[in-house]
Nucleic acid binder design. Sequence first.
RNA 1: CGGGAUGUAGCGCAGUCCGGUAGCGUACACGUCUGGGGGGCGUGUGGUCGCAGGUUCGAAUCCUGUCAUCCCGACCA
Length: 490
Amino acid sequence: MDKKATTRKDDYSKWYNDLVHNADLAEHSDVKGCMVIKPYGYAIWENMRDVLDKMFKDTGHSNAYFPLFIPKSYLSKEASHVEGFAKECAVVTHYRLRATADGKGVEVDPDAKLQEELIVRPTSETIIWNSYRNWIQSYRDLPILINQWANVVRWEMRTRLFLRTAEFLWQEGHTAHATKEEAIAETEQMLRVYADFAENYMAMPVILGRKTHSERFAGADDTLCIEAMMQDGKALQAGTSHFLGQNFAKAFEVKFADKSGKLDYVWATSWGVSTRLMGALVMTHSDDEGLVLPPKLAPIQVVAVPIYKTEEEFHRIEEKFMALGKELKAKGIRFKFDGDDNKRPGWKFNEYEVKGVPIRLAMGPRDLENGMVELARRDTKEKSSISFETALATVEQLLLDIQSNLLERSKLHRANNTFEVDTYEEFKQRIDEGGFFLAHWDGTEATEELVKNETKATIRCIPFTEHPVPGKCMVTGQPSAQRVIFAKAY
RNA sequence: CGGGAUGUAGCGCAGUCCGGUAGCGUACACGUCUGGGGGGCGUGUGGUCGCAGGUUCGAAUCCUGUCAUCCCGACCA
């Protein structure tokens, strides 16, 4: 492990990569663009997954599983869908290998060519809607509210750990409804679920909004999203919820009979978040010392480190910590006592700092003598000495404080890096500083494209707002209904 | 797919220009002193130098080919 990590200021990109390695979250595999998610990183993902899964179930959804492989013909049924994904699909063409002539290796058996090639799913709309056709006949069969936890493959040209990998883990919700209104309500509901998760668990503030036509999901009539700001001021799309209209129902001939017996196509939504959220989590809170985790998602919330010389001292401290640990665990707090004699206390301090454990407790002979324990919080790096008697209550409260402090800190950072601009000149001058730029836009793809080509900034979303304030497009001067968010994005 | 760079011990690197016994840091193993912020000292293990050819008495080093990865673009969650 590198003793000295790269700082954010030096090289934000390298800082991120080093951090992911040093915190033992993930590493590159030998397969291009694919990563190995290591146990500590996977534990964080599991926490995210568990919380989200409960949220989905609380909103009436059930989990199911559909095949990894999709017949090639399915993908061509929805025109814009195929256009959006065709260029990044992995394709299975054969089903067997054979030994090479020299007997030293294997090769694809040319006789084992598939009649119809199989696509490794880049997303599951097509195979799921092919099933829904058989599941839906009547309005009584609706709605269908299904979620799938799965891996998908998108053959990206350039990848980054967690943020963009060729294979990634995600969840994809796929719902079917009798009415347009119900489907739209579902789309909005799930966006709010994502926003709730981002803010209240990841401590990551997000802006809810709508994608422009050109940024929409391939096959959607409307794409809603949550956008977060990373510490370098770049935007990260953290989750999307799509209103698919009747596009997939039409492509897969999924009709239902309503109460009057009239046949109509089913209305659809799909929504997803991925392991990309891991990257978002890292880039939202972490500092030059390492990972910083919000308590609600930290695999270890409190770590206890004993400081001792003799075995007798160790046992007395261990006893104290284990008693405290039992009480903490009873309150649902994830506690670890690190009694590893092979590592010295200083080493452990750094280890848990790099791994972002929210609270560290340390106790040595002096503390033992005085009935005290040293408490260090990861977010502010403050250390204090507290009475052991009060440790339980202090820790319990502090976890809540850290959780809210991280959210407040991120909100402040976003506020400090969000700017209103009214002229394209100013926009071009300042866009490289990073941040969100609220500007008026005439609503045309031409203007959007122009800005993108000239500045590399895109419209992240048209934010939801109760009271839209009209104005004039910063580029063309044409009327604009409200300000939209321009930013450079991951 | 365009531009740039790199493949040498588990990890991070030097050595390559100018060919001549495979090096350093870290990690790992053992011993010892230690222990309140990544310890000190000592001993030791670990390498087909990405792969394939070629030049040479001799190649990590020179030549040709090839594969892979990373960074910057284009594409994208």
